[in-house]
Amino acid sequence: MAMMIETDRLEQELEAGTTYFDCFQRINRRRTEIAMGVYSIQVISGIYLVGYATYFFTLAGLPTDKAFDMSIGFLALGFVGTLCSWVLLENFGRRIIYNTGLAALVVLLLVIGILDCVPGYTENAPLIWAQSSLMLVWNFCYGLSVGPVCFVILCEVSATKVRSKTIAVATATQALVGIVMTIAIPYLINPDQANVRLRFASIYLES
């Protein structure tokens, strides 16, 4: 308890006199931009699809019960990927893990989007299963890299004196991007609207 009290006192001392404007001064601007970028990429990379997983698999062409099973596997692989990321963080640099993971997500989304454009897709069961399985691999890669590593980078990249404020700015930026995606995703995937199905993956790449 004494250590907690002392740590709190030191942090208050350190942050005394700082403002949110300090996050954007030349000495801290690059750190703030990186923090905002890595946190926003969580949303842009497609993680908001998790909330629509069952519906997403149904739109892909799977039976409802199989779509539910796939959504459970989707979440389970994301969890396993996050556990595995602990090992990666101990053995590899943040930049390597983050950039490699992001590159893997881009490739997977591109392949998923291309498969959705194959003629006769809706009547090709193996193709539908392959595409849905790639979504599970995608979530594993996300949990292995971009998802958890983002928070590590967010805390480590910010200057100590304005760390809490930098994190607050990055969180606000991510929330704004999240609002846009929350509004856009239902419109894009619903059959009576844009009806892009799993071609939605390629839209992420274009953005």
Rank of each mutant, 00 (worst) to 15 (best):
C155H: 01
A184Y: 11
V157M: 03
G178F: 12
Y204P: 00
I203E: 05
T173M: 07
D192L: 08
R197E: 08
A184T: 10
R199E: 11
I185R: 07
A170W: 10
A184G: 03
Q193T: 10
V162H: 02
A201W: 14
V177H: 04
I203A: 08
L154I: 07
I185N: 12
P186R: 12
T160I: 04
D192M: 06
V196W: 15
K161M: 00
P186D: 13
N190P: 01
L154W: 09
I183T: 10
T166S: 11
Y204V: 10
L198Y: 06
T166C: 14
E156R: 01
A159Y: 05
A168L: 01
C150S: 14
G178I: 12
N195K: 03
L154G: 04
S158K: 00
V169G: 00
I189F: 10
L198G: 03
I189Q: 07
V149E: 06
I153S: 03
I189H: 05
E206D: 01
R199W: 09
A184H: 05
I167Y: 05
A184K: 05
Q193C: 10
K165F: 03
F151A: 06
T166V: 12
T182E: 13
G178T: 10
M181Q: 09
C155A: 08
A175M: 14
I185M: 12
K161C: 00
Y187C: 05
S202Q: 08
S164M: 04
I203N: 05
S164Y: 01
I179S: 04
V169R: 00
T173V: 10
T166G: 10
P191W: 08
C150V: 14
I189K: 04
A168S: 09
V152N: 08
A168I: 00
A159Q: 07
T171M: 13
V152A: 12
I183G: 04
V180Q: 01
R163F: 08
V162C: 03
N190L: 10
A170P: 08
R197V: 06
F151E: 08
L198T: 07
N190A: 14
E156V: 06
E156K: 02
P186G: 11
Q174P: 00
R163T: 03
V196F: 14
Q174H: 02
R199F: 13
R197F: 08
M181L: 15
T160S: 06
V162G: 01
R199G: 14
E206A: 07
M181C: 11
P191S: 13
V157S: 01
T171P: 02
A172T: 14
V157I: 12
V180R: 01
V152G: 02
Y204G: 06
V157N: 01
V162L: 05
S164P: 00
I185C: 09
M181A: 15
E206Q: 02
G178S: 12
P191L: 08
F151R: 06
G178C: 09
D192K: 12
R163N: 05
A168H: 00
S207F: 15
I167L: 12
S207R: 07
C150M: 15
V180L: 13
T182V: 15
